[in-house]
Computed example of a mutant assay.
Amino acid sequence: MATIRKLRGRWQAQVRRRGMKPRAKSFDSKAEAEKWARDLETQVDRFGAASDTKILERTTLDDLLKRYKIEVSPTKRGAVQEIQRIDVLQRHDIAHRTLIGLSQQDMASFRDERLRSVAPSTAVREMAILSHVLEVAIRDWGMPLAKNVVKLVRRPVIRNERSRRLTGDEEQRLLGSCEGGKIPFFKTLLVLAIETGMRRSEILGLRWSDVSHNRRVITLTMTKNGSGREVPLSQRAFDALTEWKTLAEDDRPMVFPMKAGSLEQVWRRLLVRAEIKGLRFHDLRHESVSRMFERGLNMIEVSSISGHKELRMLKRYTHLSADDLVGRLG
C-alpha cells in the first residue's frame, strides 16, 4: 500500500514494494498524490520492477506525438492532414501530461472539451490519432504502459449522414453554368463525378494513363481505403472524357490539372451562378451511388464501382428516389 502524508505544506506519496527501492514524490494536492501512487503501483504490479516505470514519469504525451510525427505520419497517404492534426493536439493541455499520469479521465475530459469547439468527426479523428500513438508506443517503442487509455473512453457519435440529391433541373443548371466559367474541363469533371461516384481525390489524381479507351475503364491503383479498383465508364462519361482529351492543348499527364482548394473555390462560384443552395461536391458521390441502385445494380456491384469496403457504410449513400421505385414495385 502507498503512504500519503502531508509534509511541509505539500502532499507526499510513497510507494514500497518488495525487491525495489521506495519511490516518493510530492504534489500540491492529495488527489494528485493518490493518483500518482495508484498509477505507479499498477505499473509495478504489471511489469514487476519500478525501474520500468521511470521512463513513464519523464516522458510526456507530447514527446510521443513528436516522435510519431517524424517516424510514422510520413508513411501514410494522408500525412499532411495527420501532421496538421498532431500540431493541434500538441497545443492542447493533455500533451503535457506524463505517461505515468495519463488516465482514462484525462481522455474523457479532453473529448468533452474538444466537443465544445469542434465537430464530433474532428474529435473522433483526434482521438484515433492519440490511440494509435499510444498503441505504437506500447508495441513498437517498448513503453511499459499498462493500457491504452484512449480505448477505454467512449468515442463521440458522428451523425453526418446526408440525403441531399440533385432535384428538378439542378443537374442541367450545374452543367450549363460551367459554360460561363474559366475552367474548360470542369463540366467534364462534374459529369465524371455524377456518372462514376469517384471521390474528389480520385478524380483530381486521375492520369490519362489510367483511362483505358479500349475497355472503357478507369484503373485506380491506390484509393482512400488503401487498395486499387477498376471503375467502368458509362457511355456519357466516356464521351465527355474523349471530348476533353481532344480539346486539351498540352500533353499534361493529369486529366484535370487542379488542386483540391481550387476545386472548392470553383465549385462555390458555380453554385452561385447556377443559383443552387445546400449542395456539396461530395453529394455528387451520393447521387451517383443512389442512381446505380435505381438502375438495378446490387450491393456488391455498386461497392466494386464506388470502392466501399464495408457494405454497412454503403447503406448511407443509398438515398433512393421513392418516385423512381414506385414503378419497380408494380
Results as ranks from 00 to 15, higher is better:
92 H>S: 12
92 H>V: 02
94 I>G: 10
95 A>D: 06
95 A>T: 04
95 A>K: 04
95 A>Y: 03
96 H>T: 14
97 R>F: 06
97 R>H: 14
97 R>T: 13
97 R>S: 14
98 T>I: 03
99 L>R: 09
99 L>A: 09
99 L>F: 04
99 L>Q: 08
99 L>P: 04
100 I>D: 15
100 I>R: 14
100 I>F: 07
100 I>P: 11
100 I>Q: 14
100 I>C: 13
101 G>D: 14
101 G>T: 10
102 L>S: 09
103 S>Q: 08
103 S>W: 01
103 S>L: 02
104 Q>A: 02
104 Q>Y: 01
104 Q>W: 00
104 Q>H: 02
104 Q>T: 12
105 Q>C: 00
105 Q>R: 11
105 Q>H: 06
106 D>F: 01
106 D>R: 03
106 D>A: 04
107 M>I: 15
108 A>N: 15
108 A>C: 07
108 A>V: 07
108 A>D: 15
108 A>K: 15
109 S>A: 14
110 F>T: 13
110 F>S: 13
110 F>A: 12
111 R>T: 03
111 R>Q: 03
112 D>M: 07
113 E>T: 14
113 E>R: 12
113 E>F: 00
114 R>F: 11
115 L>Y: 02
115 L>Q: 12
115 L>W: 04
116 R>D: 12
116 R>N: 12
117 S>A: 08
117 S>E: 13
117 S>C: 02
118 V>A: 12
118 V>P: 05
119 A>V: 03
119 A>E: 12
119 A>Y: 02
120 P>H: 06
120 P>V: 04
120 P>R: 10
120 P>K: 08
121 S>L: 02
121 S>M: 00
122 T>E: 06
122 T>S: 15
122 T>F: 01
123 A>K: 01
123 A>P: 00
123 A>R: 01
124 V>A: 11
124 V>F: 01
125 R>L: 14
126 E>K: 10
127 M>A: 09
127 M>C: 07
127 M>E: 11
127 M>H: 09
128 A>R: 05
128 A>L: 01
129 I>Q: 06
129 I>A: 04
130 L>E: 04
130 L>I: 06
131 S>H: 08
131 S>K: 12
133 V>I: 09
133 V>L: 10
133 V>Y: 06
134 L>C: 08
134 L>R: 10
134 L>V: 08
134 L>M: 07
134 L>A: 09
135 E>C: 00
135 E>K: 05
135 E>H: 04
135 E>P: 00
136 V>Y: 01
137 A>Q: 07
137 A>S: 11
137 A>K: 07
137 A>N: 08
137 A>F: 03
138 I>N: 10
138 I>R: 15
138 I>M: 15
138 I>L: 09
138 I>W: 03
139 R>G: 02
139 R>W: 00
140 D>M: 05
140 D>L: 07
141 W>G: 06
141 W>S: 08
141 W>T: 08
142 G>A: 04
143 M>R: 05
144 P>W: 03
145 L>Y: 06
145 L>H: 11
145 L>D: 09
145 L>V: 13
146 A>E: 14
146 A>P: 09
146 A>C: 13
147 K>R: 15
147 K>W: 01
147 K>S: 12
147 K>I: 05
147 K>M: 05
148 N>S: 05
148 N>H: 04
148 N>L: 03
148 N>C: 06
148 N>W: 02
149 V>E: 13
149 V>R: 10
149 V>P: 02
149 V>F: 01
